[in-house]
Design a protein around this nucleic acid. Structure first.
Lengths: 208, 208
DNA sequence: GTCTATACGATGATAGAC
DNA sequence: GTCTATCATCGTATAGAC
């Protein structure tokens, strides 16, 4: 679970306070037991409210998930975009994007779990909207790889396939990451950035 | 969804016939909507039976999942082990293991989804048993990487971390693979084997 | 905005006939 | 072994008082 401070910051623009408390409670519950196994009673209870109070702020349980998924995807996209423009060379930008994206999945693994693994519980309309944001994330990473290939810095036979693999690697961190484990988010980010540079055939310290 | 022929083969040792039909129905339902969102009525219906018939063959819904997870993990472990001993060099064995493991996750992505993403729905006892099999899979892959490092064929600063990343990459195929997509399981297996050889710093055609 | 009380359909599982 | 019928409980969501 994220720390309380991290939660407050992440959900700062969910107001009023009760609505934010419900979001935080729902993220914890969904991440822990899954969307379908979580009851509205459980969410309300974690937020210190009666079951009925949830419906003042959200019309349905799915709307609560939609809110979480929307904010979560916005955060994820922002992080990748910002990191993707940090660095002079494609290799630096790719390493930066992977390091940041992985770190987010580890640090905010509760949120990331809901964002990445509960898409199927969204309504068709909500899913379509979220899927568009996911394609933006994919496009951001693909652009860096294309830049690297054009510049002759990367050797990548299959750019879309490699993009998919890179994102897949980052996303799956949310599944296995354990806060009590031996590795910090920072360490995993550094390891993965190195592995990804190897995947795209970028020369440098990775080969050392 | 897997083809019918693939299903029969996979679950051949689940008998009698009705019990196998229920397993196949449950795999489809669990993969499509998740364990918790699937009702016993849905499973029985797909198998062409009344809701009560399920309880002749399985004491609870969780026992059905446990059966699926058990057989699925046994299949996965067998596939990795067999592939891991195919090839003369560590690079060949690693490529073989990744290619086979990825192909299994793509070809049997319905089964793989249940196996990889519904662990949390198992009882504590059943989970502990399954987790032991998962550690065997991890150990099999790690051994190959250690062999490659010892032989001087691989350059891997962090063996456990790289093992984790390799398995993570393979497992996540079950999440995103789509049978109607552009890539065949065979193609994805080949791509991933190449990417993994790059990750471990194996020289060869990967660098071409 | 929050609570207590409750409607009411769905759900896992069982009983007993065939 | 399978079915029909049913139980007890739970789950989402609403009504109406404060």
């Amino acid at each position: 679970m994220d720390t309380e401070a991290q939660q407050s910051e992440q959900w700062a623009d969910v107001t009023p306070d009760a609505a934010r408390r419900l979001v935080i409670a729902a993220v914890d519950a969904f991440a822990e037991r899954g969307y379908h196994a979580t009851t509205t009673r459980d969410i309300a209870g974690r937020a210190g409210m009666s079951p009925a109070a949830l419906y003042i702020h959200y019309k349905t349980k799915e709307e609560l998930l939609y809110r979480i998924s929307g904010v979560g995807h916005r955060l994820a996209l922002d992080i990748v975009r910002r990191a993707a423009s940090t660095g002079a060379t494609p290799a630096e930008r790719l390493a930066s994007a992977v390091r940041s994206f992985v770190r987010w999945h580890a640090e905010h693994h509760t949120t990331a779990r809901v964002v990445q693994y509960e898409l199927g519980a969204l309504s068709a309309e909500h899913y379509a909207e979220i899927a568009a944001r996911r394609r933006e994330i994919d496009g951001t990473v693909r652009s860096i790889i294309e830049d690297g290939v054009r510049a002759g810095d990367f050797a990548v036979p299959d750019v879309p396939g490699t993009t998919l693999a890179v994102l897949s690697l980052c996303i799956d961190v949310a599944r296995w990451f354990n806060a009590e484990g031996r590795r910090t988010p920072e360490e995993i980010g550094a390891l993965y950035a190195d592995l990804v540079l190897r995947m795209v055939g970028a020369p440098g310290p990775a080969a050392a």
